[in-house]
Structures are given as structure tokens and as C-alpha cells.
Simulated scan of single mutants.
Amino acid sequence: MRHSQKGASFFGWLAVIALLVFGMVIAMKLVPIYMDHYSLRNIITTVNEDPNVKVNSLRDLNSYIEKGMQLNSIRDIKAKDAITTTQSGQNAYTVVLKYEVRAPLLNTVDLLVHFDETFIVRPLK
């Protein structure tokens, strides 16, 4: 009578655990990058939604974004390199958010995350 093995072998479990650990390491590198990006997006889009934010010029908008980045502790992204603001009407601004973040994964392997978004900002009055 032959008995077949039931369940996973030691090497099967070892492979599953190695894959889980690798996935967790990648997640630990990527989650802070995406959290900073979503905080920066929130700073920019808040200008459209919050009537308490007073933006009357490009200088005001840039100042508001830089202060928001300081308050949210976004230090890995430089506002002057990542954000381009232009006036696109009497009371409208175009904000282009374009940057990349490189996070080291292994000795010679890096994770590269690229962001490229455009926002039309119309401050409430």
C-alpha cells in the first residue's frame, strides 16, 4: 500500500516564507514613497476645496505648497525640482508634479518610482 505525502515539504514552506519576506521588504520601501506622494497631492488639491486657503499669486501657491511639505515632513522631494507652477488664466494655475524616487533594495538593485501628474488649481474665493 502506497501512502502519498500530505501537506507541504520543508523546502516548500521555506520558499513561501522567502517570498513573503521579499514582498514585505519591497512594501517597506514603497509605502513611505507613496504616502509622501499622496500627502503632496492632498496639499495641492486642498487649494481647490478649502475656502480658508488664500492664494492670489504664483508666489502664494508655491509658498503654500512648500509650507505644506514642511508640515507633512516631506523631505525626500525638493519642491523646486518636482513641482512646476504656471498661471493658466485669471484665477487658475497649472501645477505639474513630476519627479522620481529611487530606493535601494539590494546591493546593486534599486526600486525606481516615477510620478507625473498635472493639476488645475482654482482657489475658492
Results as ranks from 00 to 15, higher is better:
M1G: 03
Q5N: 02
G7Q: 07
A8M: 13
F10P: 07
F11V: 15
G12W: 04
G12E: 14
L14D: 05
A15V: 14
V16A: 13
I17F: 10
L19Y: 03
L20V: 15
V21M: 15
F22D: 06
F22Q: 06
F22P: 02
G23K: 03
G23Y: 01
G23I: 11
M24S: 15
M24D: 00
M24V: 15
V25T: 09
I33K: 05
Y34R: 08
D36Q: 15
Y38H: 12
Y38L: 11
L40F: 09
T45M: 07
T46Y: 02
T46I: 02
V47L: 14
N48E: 10
E49M: 06
P51I: 02
N52M: 09
K54I: 13
K54N: 13
K54C: 01
N56E: 14
S57P: 10
L58T: 09
L58S: 11
L61I: 14
N62L: 07
N62M: 08
S63A: 13
G68S: 08
I74A: 07
K78M: 14
A82N: 04
T84K: 12
Q90C: 01
Y93G: 07
T94R: 07
V96G: 09
L97W: 05
K98Y: 06
E100C: 03
V101N: 09
V101R: 12
V101C: 04
L105R: 00
L106E: 05
T108S: 12
L111V: 15
V113H: 00
V113A: 04
H114S: 07
D116W: 05
D116M: 10
D116I: 13
E117M: 06
E117P: 08
T118L: 05
T118P: 05
F119W: 07
V121E: 00
L124M: 15
L124Q: 15
K125W: 00
